[in-house]
């Protein structure tokens, strides 16, 4: 599945790229430069977190990861996942490989869905900036709503996997 989608993506990107090249060489160069810049932007945190997580999964036995973030980790697992997601500022392009690595080493799908959702929707660190635009009350409400909604997302993902596995 992921192989197929990767091939499709390559085909689509290449098609657009050649179309763009034929239409406007300068714009195409600009697009590639932007693509390269975005890549360079996520490289430092990616390199750091992949090494850190590789260390973690080698030193923490699978059972330990399962106990804290696994399918049966219960409330504690959701709580850890949601707090880490809400407080840290990890780019999505780094967080997704992170979740994949943790899933391969004992973490549960629902916990990872909660982690990704809170990471993307809740921003404790960016809240002061958000409040400068939307004031304190709306910022607090938006982040609280997003935080609790993330648990629903986790539940839905768990449900989807439960139904498919059956």
């Amino acid at each position: 599945m992921s192989d197929l989608s990767t091939y499709l993506l390559y085909a689509f990107a290449l098609a657009w790229f050649f179309f763009s090249l034929a239409r406007d060489r300068k714009k195409t160069e600009q697009a590639l430069r932007r693509a390269w810049r975005s890549f360079l932007g996520i490289l430092p945190p990616f390199a750091f977190l992949i090494l850190l997580l590789s260390l973690v999964v080698v030193f923490l036995p699978q059972e330990a990861i399962a106990r804290f973030l696994g399918e049966k980790s219960g409330f504690l697992g959701y709580f850890i996942a949601s707090i880490v997601g809400a407080v840290t500022l990890i780019p999505g392009f780094v967080a997704l490989p992170m979740a994949k690595l943790l899933l391969e080493h004992g973490a549960g799908v629902a916990q990872m869905a909660v982690f990704i959702s809170t990471l993307m929707m809740v921003g404790v660190v960016t809240a002061p900036l958000e409040a400068r635009y939307f004031r304190f009350r709306a910022t607090l409400w938006r982040n609280l709503l997003a935080y609790f909604y993330s648990f629903l997302v986790g539940y839905a993902v768990w449900m989807a996997f439960f139904l498919v596995r059956r």
Binding site: L9, Y10, F12, W16, S20, R34, F39, L51, S54, L101
Partner: peptide, 26 residues
């Protein structure tokens, strides 16, 4: 483990970023 993940990332990410760049420009 780190190498495997970096390799995976490098194999899937180029088209995504090229699409982001193209979309941004067009």
């Amino acid at each position: 483990i780190a190498f495997r993940n970096v390799l995976f990332m490098l194999s899937v990410i180029p088209p995504i970023f090229i699409l982001v760049g193209l979309f941004d420009v067009w």
